[in-house]
């Protein structure tokens, strides 16, 4: 077993936003600039930060109600941000020019992710119990992947709201999409055939974050749930491989390091934890935040950087080795 990973705090920015910071992702580097950290907040702004000093590059305004999710195109050129009013704004990272505004009422917008090739943006559609797929060339809605309604005498109000889709994740090869629901079920879709494959069971509380392990382990799916656990599934084999506990409250966010060796989680218990999948155990706990940690994100590419954002309005950057 390789030497386990270790986190060290690099930089924290207090009051990075005027309100709770709810979303964060890395915008990959382009030829002209390094990778940037993109954050979204209840204060209705989206901000861009340059590592490692976390120097504020720009503040994007224009959203109403809080910003709940952000996503970056693999090219690093464009990014998307979404707010509680269910609007997605697609913009040019460097110029902040609006490229498109997306909405598919009455579907809400929660987590979003660009597919690895950058041709499709997947959006968790909340109460519509579906994932909306947008073409990144035309910015047209190309597909709606719906979770099949459970068989029953009548689809009652309750059961449908349970399939409320919160989170979404692409497999590294772009062939599979997984989404997490309020009732804890995870649904796996075959993207090419736009077909629902199966559910992954084990959680019974909201799954707010999902991430696939990178190649070659790409069948492995990590899920973060309000039940305080991180589950590891074989997304193809429909099996629960393992469960990791330790957080004392909801697990809000999960991300896997680019080499697939370590998993980071952010939780309502104010901590960021680093886990070793092989040990099925937490290696390290960071307690620098003073409120819920809504997002954790490993920087793609390398250099070992992890960012976390929190309700305490701050953002933090860690070095991981």
């Amino acid at each position: 077993m390789a030497k386990s990973m270790k986190l060290a705090g690099l930089k924290s920015v207090d009051n990075a936003h005027d309100e709770s910071v709810w979303a964060a992702t890395w915008v990959p580097a382009t030829d002209t600039r390094p990778a940037l950290l993109l954050t979204g907040s209840l204060d209705e702004t989206v901000k861009l930060w340059r590592p490692d000093e976390l120097e504020l590059v720009r503040t994007n305004t224009g959203h109403c109600l809080g910003v709940v999710s952000v996503a970056a195109h693999p090219s690093g050129v464009i990014a998307a941000s979404a707010s509680l009013d269910s609007l997605v704004r697609v913009f040019d990272v460097d110029t902040n020019a609006t490229i498109a505004t997306l909405e598919a009422p009455p579907s809400e917008v929660w987590q979003m992710q660009f597919d690895p090739k950058g041709t499709t943006l997947a959006v968790a559609g909340g109460g519509s119990a579906s994932i909306k797929l947008w073409d990144t060339a035309t910015w047209r809605l190309i597909s709606t992947l719906s979770i099949p309604r459970p068989e029953g005498p009548k689809p009652s109000d309750k059961s449908s709201s349970k399939k409320f889709v919160l989170s979404v994740a692409w497999s590294p090869d772009g062939r599979r999409l997984a989404c997490g629901s309020m009732d804890g079920t995870i649904s796996v879709f075959d993207v090419a055939r736009a077909k629902f494959l199966h559910h992954l069971e084990g959680h019974y509380m909201p799954v707010r974050s999902l991430v696939f392990s990178p190649e070659p382990d790409s069948r492995k799916l990590y899920s973060a749930s309000d039940d305080g656990h991180v589950h590891i599934y074989d997304a193809e084999g429909k099996a629960l491989i393992g469960a990791m506990s330790g957080h004392t409250s909801w697990v809000l966010s999960v991300d896997v390091s680019p080499d697939g060796e370590a998993i980071a989680t952010g939780s309502s218990d104010k901590t960021v934890r680093l886990w070793d999948f092989k040990m099925r155990a937490a290696i390290q706990t960071m307690s620098n935040h003073t409120d819920q940690v809504w997002a954790v994100a490993f920087r793609p590419g390398g250099g070992g950087r992890l960012a976390s954002v929190s309700d305490d309005k701050s953002i933090s950057l860690y070095h991981c080795s």
């Binding site: 109600l65 009013d85 269910s86 009422p105 009455p106 109460g127 519509s128 109000d157 709201s161």
Partner: peptide, 19 residues
């Protein structure tokens, strides 16, 4: 405007019996 949006969305969603 936000309120109108919210109410409109709710109105639209009511067709789906979400609430």
């Amino acid at each position: 405007e936000n309120a109108v949006r919210i109410f409109s969305q709710l109105s639209a969603a009511s067709n789906l019996h979400l609430h």
